[in-house]
Design a protein around this nucleic acid. Structure first.
Length: 520
RNA sequence: GCCGCGGUAGUAUAGCCCGGUCAAGUAUGCGGGCCUUUCGAGCCCGUGACCCGGGUUCAAAUCCCGGCCGCGGCACCA
């Protein structure tokens, strides 16, 4: 290399540069490992419907979905609701999750609910019991743990399969209570990680006490996550599993089951956690807070949470979420996304398609002399894109501007009311009302004068605008004044409040609206 | 404590497997300029990083060892 002339080096750089560029185009997502040998690439998203999903879940969902699409494969949605006791499913969560996914433009080819597939799990369990790969364990949790930590077998491990099968039937008949029996898979009692040793495939849950929202008290014997997920992944033909790092050990556990049954284990990709700076991600934390201090929050979609419903309410576009997640990729390290980064992406997404409206905080009334009334000012909602327009009609030339902008007016002597008129300051009356004089209409004058261009609202048609904003983990409420065209917008619409920032219309009432502040 | 994974600019990410295209790319942030009826968008310029210490090698962000730091798991949760 060092022997090459500068020309030659340049040539090499050029060549490689071109090759690099080509690679980039095909790329996007890094290729999945070991795609060969799978007739069709199948991925799945398997949430627990105990609550709405958050950004971390969105990562699993989006990556899985995008990979399935990339390889022309199938994408499966599977609800993992096999714990009616500790992680009791929330009946409405099934539909809320579906809606969140649709919002992200995710479409699934198949949908399954685990609590509706119990017979399949029982059948597989029976098979494992028959071949002696699993056993019914009647030891107390403490006793088992003690033996397991010593690497010793529990007395039931070596009993004849027929005994376990008999007990299995008895469990199904309801002859054992909660905690009295559990079904374990035989793994390696000397495995370095005790958690792997003979892990639990099924446990008994008293569904008369803890009825399942879908199946009531029909089943008492419930598969654990590792069993149900493993069995389903096989029968659904899942080729690639993309899930969080917290599942690393589960892969190891589930592989024992696959070995016994001669199944091929899917390829696994474990990625790190995603969080947003200053946002709350933990589902369980949110749930307990909502239960203990409901008055402190706006509901399950409080704008300080990192759930998808919260981000949506905050005015974050699905495209933004998608872009952020895709940029993260499948890396195994945790990522804390900065809000500045999300805002920037969101701003670019929304700028071309959000209506620009006038909202004034800390309003000061300005009376403009030298203008003929009535007046009509038509302003388009967007300077370059056709998003329609609205008309401001005034029977008298009185407008609100913000207190901060009044400073400009006083200091520099003049300001420009955007898209309307250039005005000159005269004085401020004792009641705080400002008197100003009409100067001219053209923008050129404003530029010549170096006048600040500000948003404004006609006094006679102003409406109340309540802005909710999250700041340093606290909710803030600001009451401002806005143009009346806001009442004609759609609830849920994202607007650009000129010079204030982006926001989403949270609620529209007869003569006022509530806006959630997104970001600058 | 035990087991496992990882550490690239303020943040996120590319490169690491297969050592020389890396005097490290991209986005965002920050500084400056241009443009523009917003303090928004766009365009241009600039800023800023391979956790530390050894080793292997002609050559290390990339391979090896040690340290430090961060994270995950150690459930009859998912």
């Amino acid at each position: 290399m060092n022997a090459l002339s500068i020309e030659e080096v340049k040539k090499l750089i050029d060549e490689y540069g071109i090759a690099e560029g080509k690679k980039e185009e095909v790329k996007g997502l890094p290729p999945l490992p070991n795609t060969e040998g799978w007739k069709v690439i199948v991925t799945r998203f398997a949430p627990n419907p105990d609550f709405v999903i958050h950004l971390g879940n969105a990562r699993a969902a989006l990556l899985s979905y995008e990979y399935a699409r990339l390889y022309n494969g199938r994408f499966v949605l599977r609800f993992e609701d096999t714990d009616p006791r500790i992680k009791r499913p929330l009946p409405e969560a099934y539909e809320l999750i579906r809606e969140d996914l649709k919002w992200l433009s995710i479409r699934w080819d198949e949908e399954y609910i685990q609590s509706l597939r119990m017979e399949l799990y029982y059948g597989t369990a029976k098979k494992l019991l028959e071949i002696g790969a699993a056993y019914v364990d009647l030891c107390s949790p403490d006793t088992f743990r003690e033996l397991r930590n010593l690497g010793k077998a529990c007395p039931h491990r070596d009993e004849d399969p027929s005994i376990s099968l008999e007990r299995f039937e008895k469990i199904l008949m309801g002859e054992y209570g909660e905690g009295e029996a559990v079904i374990r898979i035989k793994t390696d009692l000397s495995h370095t990680d005790p958690a792997v040793r003979d892990w639990v495939m099924f446990r008994i849950i008293d569904t008369t006490k803890y009825p399942h929202p879908l199946t009531g008290d029909r089943y008492r014997l419930w598969p654990t996550y590792n069993f149900a997920a493993a069995v389903d992944d096989h029968f659904m033909g899942v080729s690639h599993v993309l899930r969080g790092r917290e599942h690393t050990l589960n892969t190891l556990k589930q592989q024992y089951l696959y070995r016994y049954l001669g199944w091929r284990y899917p390829e696994v990709l474990n990625f790190g956690r995603v969080g947003i700076e200053g946002f709350i991600l933990s589902k369980s934390w949110i749930k307990t807070q909502l239960k203990d201090n409901p008055e402190k929050f706006m509901g399950f979609d409080d704008i300080r949470f990192a759930t998808l419903s919260s981000l949506r309410r905050r005015g974050i576009a699905p495209e933004t979420i998608k872009q952020i997640i895709m940029e993260l990729g499948v890396r195994g390290v945790d990522a804390k996304i900065s809000w500045a980064n999300i805002s920037a992406v969101n701003r670019k997404t929304l700028d071309p398609r959000s209506k620009r409206v006038f909202i004034v905080c800390n309003p000061i009334k300005v009376i403009i002399r030298g203008l003929e009334a009535p007046l009509k000012v038509v302003i388009p909602f967007h300077p370059t894109n056709d998003l329609g327009s609205r008309a401001f009609t005034m029977s008298r030339p009185e407008v609100y501007i913000s207190k901060d902008d009044l400073q400009h007016l006083v200091r520099t002597g003049c300001i420009r009311l955007m898209e309307f008129a250039n005005i000159r300051y005269i004085n401020t009356a004792s009641d705080g009302i400002v008197e100003a004089e009409y100067l001219s209409k053209g923008l050129e004058d404003a530029k010549k004068l170096g006048a600040q261009i500000v948003q404004w609202v006609p006094v006679e048609s102003a409406i109340k605008v309540v802005i909710h904003r999250a700041h340093n983990g606290k909710l803030k409420r600001m009451v401002c004044i806005g143009e009346n065209s806001l009442l004609e917008l759609q609830q849920g619409e994202i607007i650009q409040m000129v010079r204030l920032g982006f926001g989403r219309i949270d609620r529209i009432k007869r003569d006022s609206i509530t806006v959630v502040y997104s970001h600058e």
